[in-house]
């Protein structure tokens, strides 16, 4: 990696001011994406502002009809959380299948969402569960947060502090892992919250996570695995790479959606 300045922030304000005064600073959360990028010399930030010392960005709060998860909460803590397990088991399941134990012990929900890897799992949960992304500046509705592959509508010095998930009536997540990376080749989350059906797809889209409106309408009328499987997805706008053709991904979306419905019950 190239040289950089390391700063450890003690509070959200510290973090934001450190970043604002840096020439080309980056927040450092779990480092599971950022550090490998630096090691490969694909990025050259002037400063890393470590968020791991900010206590009020960690933890899971039960708000009754919602759960709020601090941005610096590690995947392992979501996977092991009783609150998440009892209220949104699909989210717990999702977190427990991210990467491997080392990655789950380091990686954070805030880092995952800020990074918006087109094959990451959490973005699917944010979108299907219609979560609210809370930053130091504002609150984003899920539909307004992501902005294409590896891009979000965050400003340069904007810090995600927490994510608030409304408790759904039903939700399920099914992931078909990329055989090599074990990220999602296709991951589908289906959810019914406050009577609304939302279906999100990660891993497949050229622009990152997206909502599958055809499956949403099919499920709105008929919440069943067959209904989801019956939707023939178009391969327009889907990724094609050495692991999967766009056509195969399109097919997997319906299959994974039906499995997600089965999982949701």
């Amino acid at each position: 990696m190239y040289q950089f300045n390391y700063q450890k922030a003690g509070s959200q304000d510290d973090a934001v001011s450190a970043l604002s005064s840096a020439e080309d600073g980056k927040f450092l959360a779990g480092g599971m994406t950022l550090i490998p990028t630096l090691k490969q010399r694909l990025a050259q930030p002037s400063d890393l502002v470590d968020l791991s010392g900010i206590n009020d960005m960690v933890g899971i709060q039960d708000g009754g009809d919602s759960i709020t998860i601090g941005a610096m909460t590690r995947h392992v803590d979501v996977a092991n959380s009783d609150v998440v397990g009892s209220k949104i088991p699909a989210l717990q399941h999702l977190a427990s299948h991210i990467g491997d134990p080392q990655v789950r012990n380091r990686g954070t929900i805030g880092g995952s969402i800020a990074n918006n890897d087109p094959a990451a799992d959490y973005p699917a949960a944010v979108l299907a569960l219609n979560a609210t992304v809370i930053t130091n500046k504002r609150e984003f509705a899920a539909d307004d947060f992501f902005d294409g592959m590896f891009a979000t509508n965050l400003e340069e010095d904007e810090l995600i502090t927490a994510i608030r998930f409304p408790v759904p009536e039903k939700a399920g997540y099914a992931k078909f892992p990329n055989p090599a990376s074990r990220y999602a080749l296709v991951g589908v989350m289906v959810a019914q919250t406050g009577g609304e059906t939302r279906v999100s797809v990660t891993g497949a889209g050229q622009d990152g996570v997206f909502r599958a409106s055809d499956i949403e309408s099919a499920l709105s009328g008929n919440w069943s695995a067959e209904a989801a499987k019956g939707v023939k997805m178009s391969d327009d706008g889907l990724n094609s790479d050495i692991h999967a053709s766009a056509e195969y991904r399109a097919h997997l979306i319906s299959v994974m959606a039906s499995r997600a419905v089965d999982a949701a019950g």
Binding site: P179, A180, S181, Y183, I242, H243
Partner: peptide
């Protein structure tokens, strides 16, 4: 080389 890391080469 498209399979130049464990992200793409399946061990």
């Amino acid at each position: 080389l498209l399979t130049g890391s464990y992200m793409d080469y399946t061990m």
